[in-house]
């Protein structure tokens, strides 16, 4: 378990770095084929089939998202945000079908257009081992200000 914890922490830190540094291809490669990337705009009891979310991407749309980010025509990220996030409060649980459920918190500073924004929230990852390496099968990012007026979400959370 100690080794697994170290591996999972390293995985989350690496993912955070890929997001901070806009390495879209490497970030996209972390996902499983049946992945779901979800940023709700309601609380924990939100039903995404009946309530609108900020982001609810299947694997195909994760690809559309990164393609747009790389296109040079995503004006909301022209120039891209400068990002720096801390990942903490990591808890690890066993999930269904050998998935590993990981709870964590983040504190992200975003600098854009001479202004610094703070994004804070909690993340639930479901990680799965495929061919020996960890992949993301599910990621839910719940922002503290999910139901307030927010700015664009065209950087990676």
């Amino acid at each position: 378990m100690a080794l697994e914890r170290q591996e999972i922490e390293s995985f989350l830190y690496r993912e955070a770095r890929l997001m901070d540094e806009h390495h879209y291809d490497e970030w996209e490669a972390l996902w499983t084929d049946d992945a779901l990337y979800w940023v709700p705009c309601g609380g924990d009891d939100t039903d995404p089939q009946h309530q609108v979310s900020h982001i609810y991407d299947d694997r195909k749309h994760i690809g559309y998202r990164t393609a747009r980010m790389k296109s040079g025509a995503c004006w909301a990220q022209d120039p891209p945000s400068r990002l720096c996030r801390l990942i903490s409060n990591i808890e690890i649980q066993e999930g269904d079908n050998d998935d590993i459920v990981v709870y964590s918190k983040f504190n992200l500073s975003e600098l854009r257009m001479h202004r610094q924004n703070t994004w804070v929230g909690k993340t639930t990852h479901k990680l799965r081992r495929e061919n020996g390496s960890l992949k993301v099968a599910y990621k839910k990012v719940t922002l503290v200000n999910m139901d307030e007026d927010i700015g664009s979400l065209w950087f990676l959370l």
Partner: peptide, 29 residues
């Protein structure tokens, strides 16, 4: 049918809102 309304939700999310492909570029302008 329920799946139509779910499709409309997904269509909206990838279309107009803060993570959508049109709105944020408009606000940037």
């Amino acid at each position: 049918p329920e799946d139509i309304n779910i499709m409309r939700l997904r269509s909206h999310e990838f279309g107009q809102g803060p993570g959508g492909r049109t709105g944020p570029d408009d606000w940037e302008m």
